[in-house]
């Protein structure tokens, strides 16, 4: 393994990842700032603060929890992509995971990281082109064309993608103990934590992920017979067959 080119990949992606994200941040604020100060619609600090607080109460926890929760799944380079492109759990993670499985890259390897970055670029191309064409150019025309039934069906995209992706995540895990522990932690989050303390839903996923990671590490199989993703997946498929 030539460390120099790997090091260069890390340096390039973190430097340019940060620079492009900062640019995206500034440009995404330029439009609303223009309306406020260029067009003179600034309503004063009162309404602005009031509106911001109303949103922060609901989403404030996610601002901190999501970058931390997704880091172990995405890694550094892909984090800078994911939080600018958006739709992480229902589009980018599934893309990254499917690509890693397709080429048999094991979790935690550099190969898996580069596969994730490349898959997210592929997803970004599809996403940018479909937005520009179908929303930017044809959006107004399509709005009059798409029947409500189609809109209703696409409302189920989140469970539609989470089913296959959960299966894929289970298949590609390295150890059976990880599978059992992580499935149990996720279920406990929904049926114990949120069921008993409904207000915990804002941070319950972080609790699940942290608990699953900690328990999987503490109780990991130290026998040294580290099964590869592929043989483990084969065992699993035989078991379910």
């Amino acid at each position: 393994m030539t460390d120099a080119s790997i090091e260069r990949f890390d340096r390039t992606t973190s430097r340019w990842g940060r620079a492009t994200m900062l640019a995206g941040l500034v440009i995404s604020l330029a439009g609303p700032l223009y309306l406020m100060f260029g067009e003179g619609y600034w309503p004063g600090w009162g309404p602005v603060t009031q509106a911001w607080v109303a949103v922060a109460v609901v989403f404030g926890v996610f601002w901190f929890s999501e970058p931390i929760t997704y880091y172990p799944m995405l890694g550094s380079a892909a984090s800078y992509q994911a939080f600018m492109i958006g739709n992480i759990a229902n589009k980018l993670l599934p893309s990254a995971l499917a690509a890693q499985s397709a080429i048999g890259a094991r979790h935690g390897t550099k190969k898996a990281e580069i596969a994730a970055v490349t898959a997210i670029i592929g997803a970004a191309v599809v996403h940018l082109v479909s937005l520009l064409l179908l929303v930017g150019l044809l959006g107004t025309w399509l709005a009059s064309l798409i029947p409500p039934s189609v809109t209703e069906v696409f409302g189920y995209i989140v469970p539609a993608i989470l089913g296959p992706v959960l299966v894929q995540a289970v298949l590609s895990a390295g150890q059976n103990r990880t599978r059992v522990i992580a499935l149990a932690c996720g279920a406990a989050g929904v049926y114990l934590l949120v069921a008993l303390v409904p207000s915990s839903s804002a941070y319950a996923m972080v609790v699940c992920v942290v608990l699953a990671v900690a328990l999987s590490l503490l109780l990991r199989d130290r026998g040294g017979s580290a099964t590869t993703a592929d043989t483990a997946a084969d065992e699993k498929s035989e078991a379910s067959a």
């Binding site: 992706v165 279920a187 590490l217």
Partner: peptide
């Protein structure tokens, strides 16, 4: 070895949590 376990554990628990949250919404989900 740690980093070969962490992503799998994180993703399975996250997708289980998100998936079951969806499943609880309705029979169609």
């Amino acid at each position: 070895m740690v980093m070969s376990i962490v992503p799998g554990a994180a993703m399975i628990s996250a997708f289980t949590y998100l998936g079951l949250t969806e499943v609880n919404k309705s029979a169609v989900h």
